[in-house]
Simulated assay, not measured.
Amino acid sequence: MIHLPLVRQGPLRALAVRVALAVTLVLVTVLIIYVDRDGYRDINEDGLTLLDCFYYAVVSLSTTGYGDITPFTPEARLVNILAITPARVLFLIILVGTTLEVLTDQYRNSLRVGRWRRKLKDHVIVCGYGTKGRAAVAALLENGWDKARIIVVESREEGVRQAASNGLVAVEGNATRSAVLNEADVKNCKAVIIATDSDEASVLISLTVRQLTAGQVRIIAAVREQENAALLKQSGAHHVIVSSATAGRLLGLTTTAPPLIDVVEDLLTPGQGMALAMRSAERNEVGRNPRELATLVVALIRRGKVLPLGGEQIVTIETGDMLVYIRADESTGVTV
């Protein structure tokens, strides 16, 4: 089941709209009856007052119909056929508006899903919306990724609600199933981020994605244990992040060199300090040493391989290289 971002409307607002529609309909009906009041007859045969018009409108619209006031001229009966009867039906629709609203919402949601599918292309699928999944989405948004191009696949109802409330499209279901991934249009996505709480589930998801996409979609996965990283790569993951080992190294780094952990946290924390960014090499930078550039370049990516800039070896920039650099977070440069 696909859950599009929530469009919130408060219950008091919805109730106020229905009450306003009902009151407006009653007033319009009273006006119609009052204008043609000479065509109506009551049991007292003394004509209709404004109060009588209100009384007849209310009992007619509510389908009570006591019969003490009746139209007797052809014109008044024609007005009842063409105006009062449709108003009575509309009044009943307002009264049972909850059922009608459910049907309308289903139809509107199907239209929204259709429009969403037509526009969907080169999106990112995030499997799991726990701590890791939310952090991955935050990093994508920080780097300028459009919310409309992020799809969350989550089996927990709480996670689905949270993703939808955060403005994301959520597919409810188990990401290990082909049908669920096809709902997220995995064949046309740009990448799949696997951020589940189980290494076994991560392996199964990776295998399923590889089978559905013939290995054409990039898979980035997180695992808890180092020993499962090799298995996950064999399953089709292009990049594997070992969360427990990474946390352990950061703990050790904090013990031996406390200031360094502050730098790492600054780089990883969105919205403050420094941030890692990547961009294509410009034409005037080709042939130059990355250390000569105004930006602080820490690595080159050439044909999918990372070239570190440390050591005595001199590396020059070539056409097609990607520059990994450190920028200030308030920079307006495009990041990847």
Rank of each mutant, 00 (worst) to 15 (best):
V153P: 05
V192P: 05
E157K: 07
S155C: 09
A170Q: 05
D185G: 05
N166K: 06
G159K: 01
G167P: 15
V180L: 13
K119Y: 12
A163M: 08
A139F: 07
A179W: 07
V171D: 12
V152R: 03
Y107H: 09
R115M: 10
N109P: 08
T104H: 11
V113Q: 15
T176F: 15
L140I: 01
C127Q: 02
V180F: 04
D122G: 03
L140T: 00
D146N: 08
K187Y: 02
R117T: 11
E172M: 12
A184D: 07
C189T: 00
D122N: 07
V186G: 01
L140K: 00
V153E: 12
R118D: 13
A164D: 14
I151V: 15
N188G: 01
W116P: 13
R112M: 09
N166A: 14
I125K: 03
R108T: 00
R177M: 08
E154K: 00
L111E: 01
T104F: 15
D185Y: 06
K187R: 07
R177K: 10
E101W: 11
A170I: 07
V160D: 06
K147H: 11
Y107P: 05
A163H: 00
D146W: 13
G128I: 01
L141S: 01
R115N: 13
L100A: 11
R149P: 10
V152C: 14
V124F: 11
L140F: 08
E154F: 00
Y107A: 12
R156S: 14
Q106S: 02
I151A: 08
K132H: 04
R161V: 15
L120K: 03
A175W: 04
V152Y: 07
I151F: 14
V113G: 10
L168Q: 04
R161P: 13
K119L: 12
N109M: 12
V160Y: 00
R156A: 14
G167I: 05
V186I: 03
N182A: 08
L141N: 01
R112C: 09
E183F: 07
A139Q: 05
A138C: 05
D146R: 03
N166C: 10
R177Y: 06
C189R: 02
G167Q: 08
C127N: 01
D185W: 06
R115Q: 13
K132V: 03
V171F: 11
S178R: 10
I150S: 09
G144V: 10
V169H: 05
I151H: 05
